[in-house]
Computed example of a mutant assay.
Amino acid sequence: MTEVELLADDLREVIGRFVRAVRAHAPTPSDARAETLAFLERTGPVSIALLADGRGVTHQTMRLVIARLASEGWLELVSDPQDRRGYLVHLTEKGVAENAAARKARAEWIADALAATMDPREMATLRAAVPLLQRIADLALQ
C-alpha cells in the first residue's frame, strides 16, 4: 500500500469507530426515526420516493416510517406543487427541535470525551484538522 492508501485506510477505520462511539454513548437514538428526521433536515422537503431512495429503503417501508412520524407530530405531508398527486415530506417545528436536541447531545458527549482525553495542544491539532476533513467531505457536494 502507498502512504496515501495507508492514511486513507487509517482515517476510514478511526472515523468509523468515532461515529460508532458517539452513536453508542450519546443519549440519542440511531434508528429509522432519527435517521429520517436528520435526512430531511439536510435535504429539505422531498417526496416519499426520494426519501426512500436517499435512506436506502423501499417505498413501502418509508411510507410506514413517515406515517408513524407524522402521527407523532415530527413531520407533515404537504401537497407537491409540481405533482398534485404527490406529497412532499416536511419537518415540523417538533422535528427540527428533535434534531437540534440530538445534535446538542452528541456534541456534549464529544466535548466531554475531548476534555477527558486531550490536552490543549492536542485539541488545537484536532481543530486544525477540521478544515482538512471538511475539504474531503465537500467532495460529496460536487
Rank of each mutant, 00 (worst) to 15 (best):
A8T: 04
D9H: 03
R12W: 10
E13T: 13
E13G: 05
V14W: 12
V14L: 12
I15P: 01
I15G: 03
R20D: 05
A21Q: 13
A24Q: 13
P27D: 08
T28Q: 04
S30Q: 07
A34D: 15
E35G: 08
E35Y: 10
E35I: 00
T36V: 03
T36A: 13
P45Q: 05
P45Y: 09
V46E: 02
A49N: 03
L51Y: 09
A52E: 09
A52G: 11
D53E: 12
D53G: 11
V57C: 08
H59I: 06
T61E: 11
S71A: 14
W74V: 04
W74P: 02
L77A: 07
D80F: 12
P81Y: 02
Q82S: 05
G86I: 07
H90E: 06
T92P: 09
E93I: 00
V96F: 08
N99F: 03
R103T: 01
A107K: 14
A107Q: 09
W109G: 02
I110P: 06
D112L: 09
A113C: 02
A113S: 06
A113I: 00
A115T: 02
A116S: 11
T117D: 02
M123S: 14
L126Q: 09
L126K: 05
A128G: 07
L133M: 14
I136R: 13
I136S: 08
L139A: 09
L139I: 03
A140Y: 05
A140N: 06
